[in-house]
């Protein structure tokens, strides 16, 4: 399939994924985790990828970063970043590509900090390794970086355990944008955090995004959060994209029954209580067809075959 999607605004796409297929090979059978997925992200655009556990959204993120290891393998399709073929990159090129071009923040990234190194040393490490700055220059930049995410630069000498979970997550985000990447991948960046901290982190990301102008691939299962933050979004189910459109349009009028169920899982915060239904246990969609454009910029997979609900 070829879905040429207009990216947000008139900008050139930063990332273009076409017919990406990822398989997990087993001894006797293999599982297709990502099945012919196509989307693109424009410059300065926040693109959301929504779906439940196991739908393949994190596999896509790992494929972009070329982090997939056996038994996972990219079985088809292409990933182009700024015109370059990511899948054809050599080791040295990949090393530059990660961090400098694309940075990723994982779900429990705050636990990925080295517990026996100070925050400052860990940031200095990035600058000396990837940008070749002197230690003094790196320290100065590290202090700036912490200020950017509103952490007191005095914290440079703190160890990770001396910071709260929210502060650690902000430090990790600061480290991700240290080399001014043009794409930031956020894989469930706030799932392990309390709602107040989550709001602050998201506000921080938006602010950084406005300031530094990078694009964002934002992965979450929380539709409310996604609609609030993203410009455009795609909904995934069983490795396939079932619907993609501007986030506001999906919120206002989700077309695919799965998107509707996912939206219905988040009760509104205002207005009268309306009964919601969600997705019944055991309902499965299969043979999801390629998405088709129904209104400008709104793509949806034609109505699938419903397999009987068990309850």
């Amino acid at each position: 399939m070829t879905v040429s999607q207009t990216s947000f605004g008139s900008h050139k796409p930063v990332l273009e994924i076409k017919d990406l297929t990822v398989k997990y090979r087993g001894d006797t059978r293999s599982t297709t985790a990502v099945d012919r997925v196509s989307f693109s992200i424009g410059t300065g655009e926040i693109f959301g990828l929504a779906g439940e556990s196991g739908c393949g959204k994190s596999t896509i993120a790992n494929a972009i970063m070329r982090l997939l290891r056996d038994p996972a393998e990219i079985a088809g399709g292409s990933i182009r970043f700024g015109g370059k073929d990511v899948l054809a990159m050599g080791q040295e090129e990949l090393r530059r590509f990660r961090w400098q071009d694309v940075a990723m923040v994982f779900q429990s990234a705050m636990n990925s900090l080295n517990p026996v190194m100070t925050i400052g040393d860990q940031i200095v490490d990035i600058y000396t390794t990837h940008a070749g700055y002197t230690r003094k220059e790196s320290l100065r930049r590290a202090a700036e970086l912490l200020e950017l995410v509103r952490i007191d630069p005095a914290r440079l000498t703190s160890y990770p355990h001396q910071l709260s979970g929210g502060m650690r997550q902000r430090a990790v985000i600061a480290m991700a944008v240290a080399l001014k990447p043009s794409l930031l991948i956020l894989d469930e960046p706030t799932t392990a955090l309390d709602v107040v901290v989550q709001q602050e982190i998201m506000a921080q990301i938006k602010e950084l995004q406005r300031e530094l102008g990078f694009s964002v691939l934002f992965i979450t299962h929380d539709m409310s959060l996604m609609v609030e933050l993203s410009h455009r979004m795609a909904v995934m189910y069983g490795g396939r994209i079932v619907e993609t459109a501007k986030a506001r349009d999906i919120h206002a009028a989700p077309l695919h029954p799965y998107t509707q169920a996912l939206m219905g899982a988040f009760p509104p915060l205002t207005g009268p209580r309306v009964p919601l239904t969600g997705l019944a246990d055991g309902v499965k969609f299969s043979n999801i067809a390629d998405v088709q454009e129904v209104t400008p910029g709104h793509f949806v997979s034609p109505l699938p075959v419903l397999q009987g609900a068990s309850s």
Binding site: Y258, L262, G278, A280, D281
Partner: peptide
């Protein structure tokens, strides 16, 4: 999973 949560609440 988020899509079945509402069923439990109901």
């Amino acid at each position: 999973d988020v899509s079945v949560r509402i069923g439990i609440l109901n």
